[in-house]
Design a protein around this nucleic acid. Structure first.
Lengths: 235, 235
DNA sequence: TGCTGTGAAAGAGTTCACAGCG
DNA sequence: CGCTGTGAACTCTTTCACAGCA
């Protein structure tokens, strides 16, 4: 399984950079809507909540799309980042598990906005099957494989209870899905070549609790640390 | 610059480790429920989805809680990790924005389970105010400051539309909240000392799309691409 | 013997600081 | 002159490999 084909250009964009491109894209979209035509690394970085050196380094992995002495053309950069992220094509997404979370996801504007289209909703509960949500019919989980193949779904969002997640995961992988976004609080095991991203609400809270606890500790002459963790934006 | 005060113990746990402790905790909890008394780094790592070297290194930052030749005592390790994460105390959490997502969060079992207690729900919509969700009354956003102080809320979850997020953020910080979990798709700017963690659904999808696109580049017979609906969005 | 705990090496990501282009 | 693009230094994280204890 070799996967380092030396293609035309070094397309090896660092993972950390990939994770920030959507942030830049969002900031740029906002600017475009406000009619901003050009932006400096300093200003874009501020809007995205990172520092300018990092932003420039990130963008440099895509190519030289800026103009020295001037900055970046907003529309052009939007296009380049979109293309890099694969958002110039249309991705069909299925959501499995239509509880409150699944509903929230189905209705979430950000999904549809850019390159993504919710193409199918599934649930195991007969009372939910048949509901109309965000213009879609909720289908029975028995239809999972057939519908995924018929509609060309390539990304599956799992919003089921933890106990059901692995089974759903196995089933969608069996019909060729290789990108999964997992909201169930469980570790999914998948074969090589399948990407799983996890969003875990309680883990985020626990990380906050850790830092919150420390703040309390630091009364009177404690460790100096105050540091920031991720997005420490201050003027 | 150097802050390596030789306090009682080196409490400087790497951020990457902190982010994984909740994972270990969850795996351990599952084992405890199944009656497992002792676990090796190999087995625990497998259950948590990491490799054993990383797990041992992570745990070594907490102290020497394992037994060579044997492994870790499950209950004892649960206690130590919980304590380190600050989960042996009770954290009052408020959720602002009771749409589908806010509802999902309010009902999410994982919140309550361990150290966290949803203590207040807020919304600006008069039709939602007064609703009973997960045993709580939804209160009007005007009550935000008063209720936070009265109930000792220390962590605030923002699940409002993006446009409202910064304002809510400023308001809760003004009454002393320093830990925020933000689901709104916007960058919050906060003063130093305030921790913001961000969960962004569309960013996760975009990262998946990036990798999915690459898979397609590689081989030509892979994913089924939906050719229809070629309507390119911007530019 | 079997497993943890950990130095040391390797790798990834970030920041610095400035060359060089518009 | 202003701002991008980038080598170089630095810091953080992961992995290796094995010493050392139960």
């Amino acid at each position: 399984m070799t996967r380092r084909l030396p293609q035309s250009r070094d397309r090896g964009i660092p993972e950390a950079t990939v994770a920030r491109l959507p942030l830049y894209l969002r900031a740029l979209t906002g600017m475009a809507e406000r009619g901003v035509a050009t932006v400096s690394s300093e200003d874009l970085a501020l809007a995205a909540g990172v520092n300018s050196a990092k932003l420039r380094k990130d963008l440099s992995h895509l190519g030289s799309y800026g103009t020295r002495g001037v900055g970046y053309d907003v529309e052009y950069l939007i296009y380049q980042i979109s293309r890099e992220l694969g958002l110039t094509q249309d991705w069909a997404v299925a959501i499995v598990g239509i509880g409150n979370l699944g509903r929230a996801l189905a209705n979430y504007g950000g999904f549809v906005s850019r390159g993504f289209r919710v193409a199918a909703l599934f649930d195991a509960n007969p009372e939910v099957v048949g509901d109309h949500i965000a213009g879609l019919n909720v289908e029975h989980i028995d239809e999972l494989e057939a519908v995924i193949e018929r509609r060309g779904v390539s990304i599956v969002v799992i919003a089921t209870p933890a106990a059901a997640a692995q089974q759903i995961c196995d089933r969608v992988i069996a019909v060729g899905v290789t990108s999964i976004l997992n909201f169930a609080p469980t570790v999914l095991s998948v074969p090589e070549g399948v990407d799983v991203r996890k969003v875990d609400l309680s883990i985020e809270l626990q990380i906050l609790a850790f830092h919150e606890q420390r703040k309390g500790d630091r009364e009177s002459g404690g460790p100096v640390m105050a540091e920031e963790l991720q997005q420490g934006a201050s003027a």
